[in-house]
Design a protein around this nucleic acid. Structure first.
Length: 869
RNA sequence: GGGAGCAUAGCUCAGUUGGUUUAGAGCACCUCGUUUACACCGAGGGGGUCCGCGGUUCGAACCCGUGUGCUCCCA
């Protein structure tokens, strides 16, 4: 079979993905094996794959594929989230394009369009995960609005309501004026904004005093002012407390009050109080029983209550109101001011604090057990630093606003009678059943939906029907799940709440380990975003480089616990690695065609095999340890080095037969086994090419993807040391050849002066081949007119046709000598220190003494070599 | 304003309880090289006052204090 010059990923990847799925390798059913369960963080149903998903799902696939090869029964559940605000916004936009206004539709008509949209575009992201090679159990695909899931969400709402953990209350909430809905605190993004601070004077209702000046960044809200507040200790204003002032332009008379909430140093020390439009002002309003004047409509325009600018957007009103204030003589000055402004995570609209009647979850009780399981490491966070972040949030937790003024989502199961009395049950029939007095009355269901996260917090439970069919065989087998892989950004939105739901409804943690990925940034460290346009086209990259190369590139650049700075160059590196793997395969295929099995395995090849076996086993153990502790990037680097350097650059060169010579069958077969073991190690990271090569090497009875790992053998440390010595000698001699400008094809004669020649004799064939020596001889005396190189206690004499450059030779030796002497000084300093000798552990002392002896020996060797020049 | 974290080679990072030959890797860089797996390659090489300052210790990249710079989370 003729293999292509370079590896071509496209068809290979399509072929193997289909093969794996057709054979049901990714499907799991409960069995006698141990489960390894992972639930995907469900992407938005309308989403398309981006770099964050790529990182996140590659990591999950690595863990899952590894578990499969380790003999677990892995189950990785795919699915999507209905994403209420995001999806509703997209559907509204789509309808607008078609000339349909949401307000012209009934709820049912709108939901019809929304479902239509979901069916059409909802699956795209799941298709894209297939391209990446993700070994998801497609038969278990879930959606947070599947009928049973929907019912479970409602069931949880009713249950928490009955337990008194859900209540309805009028509070200040974050209002998204674009989506016209409430938001939870977590959905508000605070950004620094360059704004202005306006100093405005209010006329006083005090004889002899003209004005009091306040400072505000939001002049448009003065129309809702109901007081002015100063600090009780502020001497400038004490005489005004209890008096009144007039709101400019509308001349409303408002009281001047005192409270130590006010910062004396800030602005003018006098604060205007607008209880309807500021969280803190609202608190003050409650405390002093101030009037709440809501001057804003739900779309952010000024309301009737504002009296002026009615119907104009509150942000746009800022210009005219300042003009009018200036004209009226109320404007004192305007200064530049940088401050924090809240934006909606979903629509990017400036969020308005607003007083509103909403549904809330009482978080205090739910948080306590969820905090314990993390602090006690029953659930382990990786990296552990997120424990602190988690604790801080959980200890200062606020109630969760769960109602959203949207239609796409789980509708709140609350009904109101004509008197406004509320009944919470799963359906109107159940309301009638439980409250017979409601029969015949007109009941109206709450029109709001639940926050998306109120459904996703059940994800690890309900994908196994643990809520709709409690105690079924699957939930018992798969729950708790093993590892959750997610972005740190949703630690509060999702991770914390899943732990709460797990404790509340299963009485158990939902997962053992949580691995927080980094955030994908561009080369300059900026977060990837649509608006910056710095997000690469993932599918384009896969088409260009292949999924394996993309997976390699993103993983090699992802240090555990850090953000990853994405750059094409690591994907390029991945592609080069593919080719390296491919070329090694080509070499083995050439050898396959030319084997013999006469006689015993040559001594040098036997040494090479023993050495690589030891190296392989040592690395297998190392990689295992790294993966256990979620150091995935390091594990990949280690495997990369094992293949490229140890296997290709050293081992294959050591066993390589001479020109047109056959290879011993025993060596060939062992070499093939080594390669397959390497492919096993690499498979979780780069599944496609490894499966392809596994089958290219020879006819296999089993696919790599489900093949059990070969266990490491005992690691022979002395063989590892011997290999290291060989590598050292080779590198040193090659360096000497280079520096003396001996051309690679020119042969040399090598003479070794050593007290112990046995170790060299085992490896001398390899050594001769690697440094292109025509002969290797052992000597007890110096060899004249040669290049001399000192290594450890031994000396190597290179005899070549080349003229010897004594000057540079001497230079090198002197440089080495200086280094060794410097080193000796530092060791001597330590050993000469009485306190060190007294206090250091015996083994440390022994090491220092050995260092000294070695240094002395080397200095002697170098000095002897210098003397011979 | 409150909290968390980071600072090691040009870049991205390792460096396990302080002692493992006067600090390691990958990429980038420099020199040489198309001998039949691979130039998407091979061989070799250069490159660091471990952010500054002080302290603890026989001994500090590592522990403590402090300064500076950066990042993130919360309000």
């Amino acid at each position: 079979m003729e293999l292509s010059k370079n590896y071509i990923p496209g068809e290979v990847e399509t072929k193997w993905y289909k093969h794996w799925v057709d054979n049901g390798y990714f499907h799991s059913e409960p069995n006698e094996k141990k489960a390894y369960t992972v639930v995907i963080p469900p992407p938005n149903v309308t989403g398309v794959l981006h770099m964050g998903h790529c990182l996140n799902n590659t990591i999950q696939d690595i863990l899952v594929r590894r578990a499969r090869m380790q003999g677990f029964n892995p189950c990785w559940v795919p699915g999507t989230d209905h994403a209420s605000i995001a999806t509703e916004a997209k559907v509204v936009a789509m309808l607008r394009e078609r000339g349909i206004a949401k307000s012209s539709l009934s709820r049912d008509e709108f939901l019809g369009y929304a479902w239509e949209w979901k069916e059409k575009y909802g699956g795209i992201i799941l298709q894209q995960l297939r391209k990446m090679g993700c070994s998801l159990d497609w038969e278990r695909t879930s959606f947070t609005m599947d009928p049973a899931y929907y019912e479970s969400v409602i069931k949880v709402f009713v249950d928490l309501y009955n337990k008194g953990k859900i209540y309805r209350g009028k509070r200040m909430i974050n209002w998204d004026v674009r989506a016209k809905t409430a938001l939870s605190d977590e959905e508000v993004i605070h950004k620094e904004v360059n704004g202005k601070i306006y100093h405005l004077k209010y006329k006083l209702d005090v004889p002899g005093e003209e004005y009091i000046t306040i400072a505000t960044v939001r002049p448009e809200t003065i129309l809702g002012d109901s007081a002015i507040c100063v600090h009780p200790d502020d001497a400038r204003y004490t005489h005004l407390v209890g008096k009144f002032a007039f709101v400019p332009l509308i001349n409303r008379r408002i009281p001047i009050i005192a409270d130590d909430y006010v910062e004396i140093e800030f602005g003018t020390g006098a604060l205007k109080v607008t209880p309807a439009h500021d969280m803190n002002d609202f608190q003050l309003g409650q405390k002093y029983n101030l009037e709440i004047i809501d001057t804003m409509n739900d779309d952010g325009t000024m309301s009737e209550a504002a009296q002026l600018y009615i119907g104009q957007d509150r942000i746009e009103v800022r210009k005219p109101i300042i003009k009018d204030l200036e004209a009226a003589g109320n404007l004192v000055k305007i200064e530049d001011y940088v401050h924090q402004v809240g934006f909606s995570e979903r629509t990017d609209a400036i969020v308005e604090p607003r007083l509103s009647l909403q549904w809330w979850v009482d978080m205090k009780q739910l948080a306590a057990p969820a905090l314990d399981v993390v602090m006690s490491d029953e659930i382990s966070f990786h990296p552990a630093k997120f424990k602190n972040v988690y604790r801080h949030w959980m200890e200062n937790i606020k109630d969760w606003c769960i109602s959203r003024q949207l239609w796409w989502g789980h509708r709140i199961p609350a009904w109101y009678d004509e008197d406004g009395k509320v009944y919470v049950e799963a359906s109107i029939e159940k309301v009638n059943e439980k409250y017979p007095e409601t029969k015949g009355k007109t009941l109206t269901q709450d029109s709001d939906c639940l926050d998306t996260w109120f459904s996703s917090w059940l994800w690890p439970i309900e994908v196994f029907k643990g809520m709709s069919n409690p105690g079924n065989a699957e939930i018992n087998y798969y729950y708790p799940t093993s590892t959750l892989v997610t972005a740190p950004e949703i630690i509060f939105f999702w991770v914390a709440r899943m732990i709460m739901a797990g404790e509340e409804y299963m009485g158990k943690i939902p997962f053992k380990d949580v691995y927080f990925t980094g955030i994908v940034r561009d080369k300059q460290g900026r977060k990837m975003s649509k608006s910056l346009g710095n997000s690469p086209d993932l599918l384009g990259l896969i088409d260009q480089y292949g999924a394996d190369a993309v997976r390699f590139g993103i993983m090699i650049a992802s240090p555990a616990g850090n953000d990853l700075l994405f750059d094409d160059s690591t994907i390029e590196q991945g592609k080069n690695f593919n080719n390296k793997l491919w070329n090694a395969t080509k070499l083995l295929k050439m050898w396959e065609a030319r084997q013999n099995n006469e006689g015993a395995i040559p001594e040098d090849a036997a040494f090479a095999m023993d050495w690589f076996q030891a190296k392989l086993s040592a690395t297998q153990i190392q990689v295992d340890e790294m993966l256990k502790t979620f150091r995935l990037s390091e594990a990949l680097k280690t495997i990369y080095g094992l293949f490229w350097d140890d296997y290709c650059s050293w081992y294959l060169e050591w066993i390589k037969p001479g020109f047109e010579q056959p290879i011993h069958q025993g060596v060939y077969e062992r070499t093939l086994e080594f390669y397959d073991a390497l492919l096993q190690l690499l498979h979780p990271f780069m599944p496609f090419i490894t499966e392809e090569i596994h089958h290219t090497l020879k006819t296999q009875s089993e696919d790599l993807c489900i093949k059990a790992y070969t266990a490491p053998t005992h690691v022979d440390e002395s063989v590892l040391k011997a290999g290291e010595l060989l590598q050292n000698v080779i590198s040193t001699l090659r360096d000497a050849r280079n520096k003396n400008q001996i051309k690679p094809k020119d042969t040399i004669e090598l003479h070794i002066q050593t007290e112990l020649d046995a170790p060299y004799k085992t490896i001398q064939n390899i050594l001769a081949k690697q440094v292109n020596a025509a002969s290797i001889k052992y000597t007890t005396a110096a060899i004249g007119s040669s290049i001399v190189v000192a290594l450890e206690k031994d000396k190597f004499y290179i005899v070549a046709d080349q003229a010897i450059d004594t000057v540079s030779l001497k230079e090198n030796l002197l440089k080495d000598l200086a280094h060794q002497q410097g080193f000796l000084v530092s060791v001597d300093k330590k050993l000469g220190n009485e306190k060190f000798v007294q206090n250091a552990k015996p083994e440390v002392l022994a090491i220092e003494q050995k260092k000294k002896a070695d240094a002395l020996a080397r200095i002697q060797t170098i000095e002897e070599s210098l003397a011979q020049l």
